[in-house]
Every structure is written in C-alpha cells, then in structure tokens.
C-alpha cells in the first residue's frame, strides 16, 4: 500500500512536470517549425499509447492488492455500531455467545487480524482508523466488514469519515493496540462487572448517578444502571478519551462534559446537567473516573 502510494506519487510528479513542461516549451520557448505528422505522433503517443500502458499496469496492481483489506479475521470479531455521535462496541471473542459491551474505544491485539462487523443505528457513518487501514461505511439495516491487522503497539485515533450530522466532527475514538497477552488480560477485565466505588466521594457519586436517573440511558454492569440508549460506562474510567474522542478524560473534563454536553458536542442527545451542584458533579466525576 505504501509502495503503491510512493510509486503513484513519484509518477504523478514526473508526469505533471512532463506535460506542463511540454506546454511551456511549445508556448514560449520553442521557435522551431514542426510539421503536422510530428504533431499527430505526439497525439497518438502521448494521448493513447503511453497512458494505456501505464494505467493498465497501475490498474492490475491496484486490483491485485484489493482483497487484503477484506481478508477474514483470526478469531476475534468486534462489532461496532455507529450511534449519534458515538460508537457502541461489542467484543466477540471466538466462540463467545454474548458480547463484551464497551463504547467509544477499541483495543486490538497486535499480530492478529481482527474482523470488524459494522452497522449503524440511524444514519450512515464511516469507520476509519487512519493509521491502521482504509475506511468502511456503516449503514443502518446492513452489515459491512473490514479487517485490520496492527503490527505495533500504540494509541491511535479513529474517527467517523462520513458526514453524519451536527457533531460529525466530534465523533472519534481512541484505538489502543496491545500485545496478545496484554490484550487478553485487558479483555478479561473488561468482561468483569464494574468495580465498587472506593472512598466517600465516589460512593456519593454512585448515588448521584442513580438519583439523577443516569441509569435510564447508561449501563454500569453490576449496578442497577442497565440503560442501553447511551454508551456503556462499566469501565469508563479506563478509557483514553471522553465523549467519543472529544476530551481528555480528566476529572474536570468529566464534570464539564456532564454539565455542558451541548456546548462540547452540538445537538447531542444527552441533556446538559448544568443545574447540578458542583459537589455532585465532582462526586459523579470521581465515581466515573474510578470505574477502571
């Protein structure tokens, strides 16, 4: 893929210089008189023979590397559902009957090909992790597939590439690639229910969460919160970003997010809790940040 790009880029530069150099030469520099048979040769050679050969070669090359990006995976499947404007993520390890549900972040093992089954809840989105591969659209009522095989560990950014409404720009996610062992450890932790709140502030935060009715939309496994409208928050504290790739996941940002969702993400469905007392907000943020 990179070689393909490099070759195309170099070819494009050479051809651009050649064609425009030719125009400049005939327009301004050359004073020689040419006859028409030379002109006709130029048209046939430059207009038909040369491009046909070059393009045929390029086409054959491009077609031959196409299937790579849709190769079947090595076992783990991740189902990603585009929501307004966040990502519902389900991990389906080989043979699993129920998924491990998460949101707005994807973790992948290095050295294995992971299959992504993509769909959408309302409108069309496009799933794209620039550093790892090409994009694939997500349609409501239809499932598409792309497979990725990261080779290095690291943190990357993914984002929605198909315009999907007001907050299209704010629909991103973090991708963390891990060694297989680290990944397995992480996945086991992700499958577990949420940790109990530690400390008074966090416990108060857990009460605020339930009292404010957050559980109607958000699920925190192991608690009474089982809502499925919004992102699953069971392990929200371990994520690398907040609000689907919008903010750094600091405590202050969590509080800011809850109080001013609409400012940070226009037309978002979650209401802004801007009349919530600061104490409650900070308690809630502490609780959520603690959900590792």
């Amino acid at each position: 893929m990179l070689i393909l790009f490099a070759v195309m880029l170099a070819g494009a530069i050479v051809l651009w210089v050649a064609v425009n150099g030719m125009m400049l030469f005939f327009n301004r520099i050359s004073t020689r008189h040419y006859d028409e048979s030379a002109a006709r040769k130029l048209i046939i050679g430059g207009g038909i023979v040369f491009p046909t050969i070059v393009i045929a070669a390029l086409l054959a090359w491009g077609l031959s590397i196409m299937p790579d990006q849709r190769a079947p995976g090595d076992g783990l499947r991740i189902k990603v559902i585009g929501e307004q404007w966040w990502w519902r993520v389900e991990y389906w390890p080989e043979g699993a009957e129920t998924p491990i549900v998460a949101a707005n972040e994807i973790r992948l093992p290095v050295g294995a090909r992971t299959e992504f089954n993509l769909t959408s809840a309302y409108v069309i989105h496009s799933f794209w992790i620039p550093a790892l591969g090409g994009k694939m659209d997500m349609f409501p009522g239809r499932e598409t597939m792309v497979s990725l095989e990261p080779t290095e560990t690291g943190v990357y950014r993914g984002q929605c590439a198909e315009f999907c409404g007001a907050s299209h720009a704010q629909m991103a996610f973090e991708v963390v690639t891990l060694d297989t062992a680290d990944f397995d450890t992480w996945l086991a932790a992700e499958a577990a229910p949420a940790m109990a709140p530690e400390g008074a502030k966090a416990q108060r935060g857990a009460q605020v969460f339930l009292a404010e009715g957050c559980g109607a939309c958000h699920a925190i496994r192991g608690t009474e919160a089982v809502g499925e409208v919004g992102p699953d928050l069971t392990h929200v504290g371990s994520r690398e970003s907040l609000g689907a790739g919008v903010l750094e996941p600091t405590m202050a940002n969590i509080a800011d997010w809850i109080a001013h969702t609409d400012d940070l993400k226009p037309e978002v469905e979650m209401p802004a809790y801007d009349d919530m007392p600061d104490d409650d907000l900070m308690a809630l943020a502490t609780y959520l940040k603690g959900l590792k």
Partner: peptide, 22 residues
C-alpha cells in the same frame, strides 16, 4: 473503437483478477 476496445479490456480485468464475491 480504439478507446472502447481498451475500455472493454480494462473492465474485464477485475473479473479475471479478483476471484471472490467478497
């Protein structure tokens, strides 16, 4: 005819090079 000839050959290439429905 020349251009169409080239065009037809181009169009059949993927059928011959890609042997799956995926």
């Amino acid at each position: 005819s020349v251009v169409s000839f080239i065009g037809v050959i181009f169009v059949i290439t993927p059928v011959l090079l890609i042997g799956t429905c995926a």
